[in-house]
């Protein structure tokens, strides 16, 4: 079943296009990583899906409804980000107490045990939390809603290393116990790729890649060896990335294909992180091109 359906979605901020024709569909009960560089449009997309902001043109459907001002979407989805706010007068305990009347599948037990585990103070006010503690609390809140569509925007920002890995573990355990559709955006693909089933890579407000993680991992190969041989092999091919290693050796990344085995050139795998990075970079040589 389709949870999210976007067709040619566009959103402009003060004349600048944040989303520039996004088209994709998300199947239910998958963990999808929303990957892209800063300013790619990840946050804008998530906010439209949550019904917080309105698209300028194109079609967007969540559970077959337009998300803006839709009660069904609001009741079954949550967006966890660092702008998540709660009234200044309520303590963390008050907030957790209020949640079940809104979220019908709220898991109070889970919220309480995670709350204890991460040693949060129930009497603390939300706006007074440190960046890391706020991120932790918001994450607990998001997991405990058990919303059919659970979205996280850079959830680990501000968390320390240990909390990050605990978060990813908690997310996986929750997903296994109560499968739901999870969309999670991050700059750090490597730290969460073990959790992901699919990757949605966006760049400059457009979808670049929407494939399973395993496919992305096998999307490209790197050729490394003598400059002339590498150049011969990669001529007429779509080169994603290129780098001169030393005076006579070159490193080039191309889309994967069979029968590349040639002496003098080693073939290496390219990690999903690198594939995403190369596919969204302006120049084939990366930062090195600037200094040529």
């Amino acid at each position: 079943m389709v949870v999210i359906d976007c067709q040619n979605l566009q959103k402009k901020y003060k004349g600048m296009a944040a989303l520039n024709g996004i088209t994709f569909q998300l199947e239910d009960h998958k963990i999808t990583g929303l990957i892209g560089r800063n300013g790619a449009g990840k946050t804008t997309l998530l906010k439209i899906l949550a019904g917080f902001i309105r698209e300028n043109s194109g079609e967007v459907r969540v559970f077959s409804n337009k998300p803006f001002n839709n009660l069904r979407v609001s009741a079954n989805s949550i967006l966890v980000d660092d702008q998540m706010s709660f009234p200044d007068s309520l303590t963390l305990a008050d907030i957790l107490e209020a949640a079940p009347s809104f979220y019908k599948r709220w898991d109070a037990g889970l919220a309480a045990s995670l709350f204890d585990y991460f040693r949060l103070n129930p009497k603390q006010l939300h706006f007074k939390l440190s960046k890391g503690a706020k991120a932790t609390f918001n994450m607990i809140f998001g997991l405990a809603t058990r919303c059919e569509l659970t979205m996280f925007d850079e959830p680990t920002n501000g968390m320390d290393e240990a909390v990050r890995s605990d978060f990813y573990r908690a997310l996986l355990k929750e997903y296994i116990a109560y499968p739901r559709s999870i969309l999670i955006s991050s700059h750090h693909l490597a730290e969460m790729e073990h959790l992901l089933e699919d990757i949605l890579l966006i760049h400059k407000g457009k979808v670049v890649l929407h494939q399973s993680l395993e496919e992305v991992k096998e999307y490209a190969v790197a050729l490394q060896g003598q400059t002339d041989i590498v150049e011969k092999l990669t001529a007429e091919k779509d080169v994603l990335h290129i780098k001169q290693l030393d005076s006579h050796r070159k490193y080039a990344v191309i889309k994967k294909e069979d029968s590349l085995g040639v002496e003098g050139v080693t073939i290496q795998t390219v990690s999903a992180t690198d594939v995403c990075m190369f596919m969204t970079s302006e120049r084939k040589g990366g930062i090195d091109d600037v200094f040529k």
């Binding site: 963990i31 573990r169 996986l172 355990k173 073990h194 089933e197 399973s212 395993e214």
Partner: peptide, 17 residues
């Protein structure tokens, strides 16, 4: 697949594969 996912800390779909 779910036990494997939990055991190895991976997505259940990967384990299923």
């Amino acid at each position: 697949q779910y036990q494997l996912a939990d055991l190895f800390n991976i997505n259940p779909a990967t384990a299923a594969k």
